[in-house]
Amino acid sequence: MNDWNDDFLRFSGTEGYITSPSLVEAVNAAIALERPLLIKGEPGTGKTLLAQHVSEGLGMPMEQWHIKSTSKAQDGLYVYDTVQRLNDARFGDGDVSDIRTYIRLGPIGRVFAAEERHVLLIDEVDKADLEFPNDILLELDEMRFTVMETGDEVKARQRPIVLITSNNEKELPDAFLRRCVFHFIEFPEPELMKRIVDVHHPHLDTTLLDKVLLKFYWLREQSELRKKPSTSELIDWISVLLRSGISAEQIEEQIPFLGSLLKNEQDTEALQAYDDRGGRYPESWQDLGPRYNN
């Protein structure tokens, strides 16, 4: 990785965030090509966290726009606060004649207007309406927009680095996809997972960690589960285990504090039923099939 030239190598991960080379390359390609980076992956694979660490790693401030089902493209640009203006007109506060006082910039607007170069995170873009991504395309492409009420143009002083995350709840429009650099975060393999856990729980007993991971990946292998436990659930689970002071042997026989791994009643019941009819838990990685044994 050392042969990268300095202009290009912008982001190379931070201490608190372990990443794969392909992810680093996708981030850097997006920066170099001035395109938004679309990140997809299972929930809990650290999509949102990535943005924070990109901003940290590059030393740029971050602006986050969290998308909800009611979000509209317009909200990202600016909002015209009519109620405040009416109120001020009634009570004689403020300068009502200047509409500009009542224009509040949204996340995109703020990033454009800022002096400093920002990282802009548009989080969970798939939560919004089907056409939402298309509605912000033009602004992200041209890096400017016009405030209708005043005719002012807001133009990006510094081209922000745009990161967009999606949980795959909806298909995204083609026109939108064409303009993005795409990266899919794979679920970490056990080796990488050990390093990730180490960041959160340094100096964890290796026997314990191995047992924990064995159980964790075994659970994930059960395709009957409706929601597979993810990294963040694993981290939480380990926290609980550590605090309860449970021993490695106890983890071998059962899955304590199941509630922090499985968040779904049916999954919990199903595992309970499996346990009741005397189902076996894995004893070694051999029980998990060749994927984990090479």
């Binding site: 042969d3 030239n5 392909s22 850097n28 390609a29 090509l33 679309l38 064409r178 650099v181 795409f182």
Partner: peptide, 25 residues
């Protein structure tokens, strides 16, 4: 991207780069 030399003349990085630019799902 190739013009800018983002692939750094390694096949591994070319693979990563072309995948993230060409494939969107």
């Amino acid at each position: 991207a190739l013009k800018q030399g983002l692939h750094g003349s390694s096949l591994q990085r070319f693979y990563n780069l072309s995948r993230s630019l060409l494939v969107k799902s």
